[in-house]
């Protein structure tokens, strides 16, 4: 999930660059750049979720070690 999240972030950036190069009007560019940032945020969200789960697993392992 982490890897997919990073790929999604990079894809969002390329969407932004594509909007800049391909679209002529300011309004269209704005809309696509915002979409690009939303895609980046989606990717960041996936990476975050993956790390939250990892942090919980780590604490759970710690709890078991303490009990032993």
């Amino acid at each position: 999930m982490k890897l997919a999240g990073f790929f999604l972030s990079v894809a969002g950036f390329f969407l932004t660059v594509a909007a800049l190069v391909l679209l002529p009007s300011l309004g269209e560019r704005f809309a696509f750049v915002i979409c690009g940032i939303l895609v980046e945020c989606g990717g960041l969200g996936m990476v975050t979720r993956s790390h939250v789960e990892a942090a919980r697993r780590m604490q759970s392992r710690e709890g078991r070690e303490t009990l032993r």
């Binding site: 972030s9 969002g12 704005f30 750049v33 940032i37």
Partner: peptide
């Protein structure tokens, strides 16, 4: 828009 593209580069490429 220029500022937003800069922010996009930081989040989507630099990070």
């Amino acid at each position: 828009l220029a500022q937003t593209i800069g922010i996009s580069a930081l989040i989507g490429l630099v990070f």
